[in-house]
Amino acid sequence: MNSARFASWRRTCLWLALALVAAYPVLWMVLSSLKGGNQEIFEHPFALPHAINWRNYQRALRDGNMGAFFLNSLWVTGLTAWATVWLGAWGGFALSKTQFPLQRVWLGLFFLGMILPVQSFLIPLMSLLNTLGIHDSLWALILPYTAQNLPVAVLLLAAFFRALPAELEEAARLDGVGTARFYLSILLPVARPAVGTIIVISCLNTWNEFLMALLFIVDPEKKTLPAGMIAFEQAHNTDYPALLAGLSLIALPTLVAYAVFHKQIIRGVTAGTVK
């Protein structure tokens, strides 16, 4: 009995040690972002900061322009998620009807859209954005991001709406509720879990997207966080405390969101894959 308890205690300790190793890079980033200088960061990589240096964050915001990038990212992420949910819900609702014309063709196209890598449409998109006159503006990211997130949203919501009982709409129609009102006040509230999933996926994708942001935005004021961070790193590549503060500014919002909504986020990230 005692040896069994010892074995289980040892197993717990081993796993917790492994978890600490897995979490170490993030801990190192956040702790180092508060340290006094390069020497303290690299000579005592496992120590806690001697004193909390918020100045590093000030430098990241001032020298690295991370404040502007943060607002850009917030705006792009918010608008992309909002547009993805609305367009996805409309499209998914229409596509869930069995008598929708050419239904299988559209489903196939959106499935193809889910598989296609960004690299498939990256290069012509640059000239298209020029033609549309939105090159080097945040719209040059919002619209492609929305388009890229739409296939999952449409397919997920179409599947969700189709699984709902048909009586729901019939009962509403018998009560004299029009399509628009049925959609707004009955269907969307019912679809809350699926909508939540789509918000999670599109927000994470957009907040972290790098390749399109790197190529579509040249104006240093219009960059989003990941692309802006690369510019910051190239301009101040030895000020590690400030760089790590900048990295923490990108990572902390997603990590805090994950700490609060980890169930929804895990469900959301796997929903697009397991289905």
Binding site: L95, W106, L122, P124, L128, T146, A147, V154
Partner: peptide, 15 residues
């Protein structure tokens, strides 16, 4: 259906 399809076609399929 049109808005979703339009955005998807213009920014993914056509490019």
């Amino acid at each position: 259906f049109t808005p979703a399809l339009l955005v998807f076609v213009v920014f993914v399929l056509l490019p």
